[in-house]
Every structure is written in C-alpha cells, then in structure tokens.
Amino acid sequence: MIGKLTGVIDSIEDDHLILDVNGVGYLVYCAGNTLASLNINQNLAILIEMIVKEDQLTLYGFTDTSQKKWFKLLQTVQGVGARMALSILGILTPDQLIGAILAQDYNSFKQVSGIGAKLSSRIVNELQNKEGITSLSSGLTNSGSLGKTPNTSISQSQNIVGDALSALSNLGFNRSDAYRVLTEIYNQNNEITLEQLIKQGLSTLGRR
C-alpha cells in the first residue's frame, strides 16, 4: 500500500495532478483547494489514500492528516463516495466541517455540487454523534467544542448554546459562524445566562 509520495509536480489538472517520483508519474486526485495552492515543478510530499477496486487502483492525495481522516470519515455516510468526499473537502476545511456538523448547518454542504437537502441532512445526522469527531479538527478541539467542567454537564451546555444558536440563526447569521462564536464565549464562562450569551454573540458577530 502507498501511504505517502514525495516528488515533483509534473502537471496539474482540474481534479488531479501528476507527481513525478524518480521518473515515474503518479496520477493523484486532490481536493480543488489543494490543487489551487500548488504549482507545476514544485517539490511536494503528499499523504496518500489508495483505493483498490477489481480493475482499478486510484490514489487520493492530502496535505495533512486531518484532511485525510475526514476523507475516510465522510465515506462512512451512505451516498458519499470517494469523489464526493473529495468535493466536500474542496469546499469545506476540516474546521468548517466540524463547525457545520455540530451546528447542524445543512446549507454548508449544499454548496457542494451533487449534494441536496436529503444528503446534507444525512451527513450531519450520521456524523454529529460520531465518537471523537472534534479531535479531527485541531482548530476547534480547544475553543470551538463544548467543554465539561465540575459546574456544568455537556447536555446543559448543549442546551444553552443550542437555544442561543437558534436565536442567532433566526436573525440571519450563518449557523457555523454563530456556533463557533457561541461555544468560545460559553467555554470562557459556563455560568453565563442565555440572554447574556445571545447579546455577546450578537456583539461578536456584528464586528465580523
């Protein structure tokens, strides 16, 4: 199995690149945002997920382990194959993925071609309760996921943040952005009231 390739980028196409490794060209499919950040003749070390079918061997490339883990996790959802998972990663970063899932922001997934209301709901519903999901996004593990302290339970924190999230969402704020802001505020003061949380959330989001 191939886990990593290091070489020089020979060419870049819409959905893949050719990586020259000691004279052998490997075709590697990558997310659109990854390809956009690369250049021909650039030296590249890239993580590989190899998928083998009866008559085909396909390589998918990732610039970090978080992206690769999300690629595999997304495919556990019925209706999401390798190409669809890669398309999702081309639109949403790992941080944005965890935020959208925990905030139940279905619209974020609808940005991806081929994903409608039914599949976006399935992705969120199936992944939001996955054990250890927040560890897949280092940017949210400490500040953007609900913590647990001696004075509060996770269910209590979810309730107050959920109520505040509904209020801000009804005012037109993006659910993922609002969720990130509200959890940061709540984790700094878990004795905050719902009214205070909404006010501080409005103040923070209004400055962005």
Results as ranks from 00 to 15, higher is better:
Val124Tyr: 14
Leu102Phe: 05
Leu127Ser: 09
Leu86Glu: 03
Glu131Asn: 14
Ile154Trp: 14
Leu89Glu: 13
Ala100Arg: 01
Lys110Gly: 03
Gly116Thr: 09
Ser121Trp: 13
Ile192Ala: 05
Met1Pro: 05
Ala103His: 07
Ile46Met: 02
Thr34Phe: 06
Glu184Ile: 03
Val124Thr: 10
Asn39Trp: 04
Lys118Glu: 13
Ser135His: 04
Thr152Cys: 11
Lys72Ala: 05
Thr149Phe: 12
Ser113Val: 07
Gly172Leu: 03
Leu27Ala: 10
Leu38Trp: 02
Ser66Gly: 09
Val80Ala: 14
Phe71Asn: 06
Asp64Val: 00
Gly25Tyr: 00
Ala103Met: 09
Asn43Leu: 06
Leu182Tyr: 07
Leu44Lys: 12
Glu54Arg: 11
Leu197Gly: 07
Ile51Phe: 09
Gly3Thr: 12
Gly81Ala: 10
Asp14Thr: 12
Asp55Glu: 15
Val24Lys: 10
Ala178Lys: 10
Thr204Gln: 11
Tyr60Asp: 05
Gly99Met: 01
Lys68Val: 00
Gly139Trp: 12
Lys69Pro: 03
Leu140Gly: 00
Asn190Ala: 07
Val52Ala: 03
Ile51Gly: 08
Tyr26Phe: 11
Gly7Pro: 06
Ala31Ile: 11
Gln156Arg: 15
Val21Asp: 03
Asn33Trp: 05
Gly25Val: 01
Leu92Ala: 15
Ile192Leu: 12
Leu59Ser: 10
Thr76Lys: 09
Leu17Gln: 02
Val28Ser: 01
Leu197Val: 08
Leu35Asn: 13
Gly114His: 06
Ile98His: 04
Gly3Asn: 13
Gly23Lys: 05
Asp105Tyr: 05
Ser145Pro: 01
Ser143Arg: 09
Asp64Ser: 03
Ser138Val: 12
Asn159His: 09
Ser176Cys: 05
Lys110Pro: 02
Leu5Pro: 00
Leu197Cys: 09
Gln196His: 07
Gly116Asp: 12
Leu17Phe: 02
Ser155Val: 10
Gln56Ala: 13
Thr152Gln: 15
Ala85Tyr: 15
Gly61Thr: 01
Ala82Cys: 11
Ala103Cys: 11
Tyr106Ile: 02
Leu57Val: 08
Asn187Thr: 05
Ala103Leu: 08
Glu184Val: 04
Asp20Arg: 00
Ser120Glu: 14
Met1Val: 09
Gly25Ala: 06
Ile48Gly: 06
Gln42Asp: 08
Gly147Ser: 06
Gln67Ser: 15
Leu35Cys: 06
Thr76Asn: 08
Glu131Met: 09
Leu97Cys: 08
Ile185Val: 03
Ser155Glu: 15
Asp95Thr: 02
Gly81Leu: 08
Ser138Glu: 14
Ile115Asn: 03
Asp15Arg: 15
Tyr60Glu: 02
Lys118Met: 12
Leu44Thr: 03
Lys4Trp: 01
Thr204Leu: 06
Ile160Val: 15
